[in-house]
Nucleic acid binder design. Structure first.
Lengths: 156, 156
DNA sequence: ATTGAAATATGTTCGTA
DNA sequence: TACGAACATATTTCAAT
């Protein structure tokens, strides 16, 4: 597990910087500087500090999967045989690009995943041909997302 | 529902551009230009086209919640009374910053959410005080994520 | 669609307070 | 920490192909 600095002091200016960049990673430093009322150089220096602290884990372009025809999101609870090691199953799941998230969870399932497919037919294929064929997968329970109402990061 | 252009032709160069920016939203255009072997101006023009197509829905700084002490992720299936309208419940969930995702799903639950809390105590508070107190919420089922192994976007 | 060059805008460094 | 000025890079526009 990666060690991260847990002793960070984030003041209001830092929060403004982070909030602006969480909304739009390309917000110019000088636009933020103008908003908070200090110089661009100071914003730049604070950004360096925030990066060093580990609080920023990267910046990403977010693509809209619907435009590419991916309209069917689903959550799948997976039951694994005792025999198979969970990490081995995760390695197989990593090879399936439709799997966007994978968690070990408490409760009945061994593994819980989020997948994104083009349509129900595609979902069925991934479920029956890709996931069910992983050694150790005994049973799955699928919940299709009919609509996503909230999608955001934690509040700073 | 937002209308998006479904008739997009994405060639290999577009894919290289998108993949670079999905990895790091601040990748310089000229670095991409060098990688694919065409001019910066051409990359710039393709980026404009991709933005106009709607395939890019934004760019974000990704923050590492662990550094802020948020270490407990959970998924919660929510049962709603027939009486309450689902959108009303969603409106209440929007007010809870710990709720990162919210879906209408097939299956037993009316609503399925992902939440991120500092610890189990915090999770219990959000569950018992914030979520259970929403009018119409009759019962919930909680699955705590012990570890997240995969977290990514769809492959381009 | 692509190019190179020019014009703008933005990011970064540094000496100083 | 913060500042401004100097400097280095990056983005954007444009006429031409």
């Amino acid at each position: 597990m990666k060690v991260v600095n847990q002793n960070i002091e984030i003041d209001g200016i830092d929060k403004t910087i982070l909030r602006a960049l969480m909304r739009d990673a390309r917000t110019p430093i000088l636009a933020i500087a103008k908003e908070v009322g200090i110089s661009g150089a100071a914003i730049h220096q604070r950004l360096r500090k925030l990066e060093a602290s580990g609080i920023i884990s990267g910046s990403k372009f977010v693509i809209n999967p619907k435009v590419l025809g991916y309209t069917t999101m689903a959550f799948i609870g997976i039951y694994l045989d005792k025999a198979i090691s969970n990490p081995k199953a995760v390695k197989q799941l990593e090879k399936i690009p439709e799997v966007l998230e994978c968690h070990y969870t408490t409760g009945n399932w061994s593994i819980f995943i989020k997948i994104l497919c083009k349509d129900n037919e595609h979902l069925m294929h991934v479920l029956n041909k890709e996931i069910q064929s992983i050694p150790g997968v005994s049973r799955t329970e699928t919940f299709i997302s009919l609509a996503q109402q909230i999608d955001r990061q934690i509040e700073i």
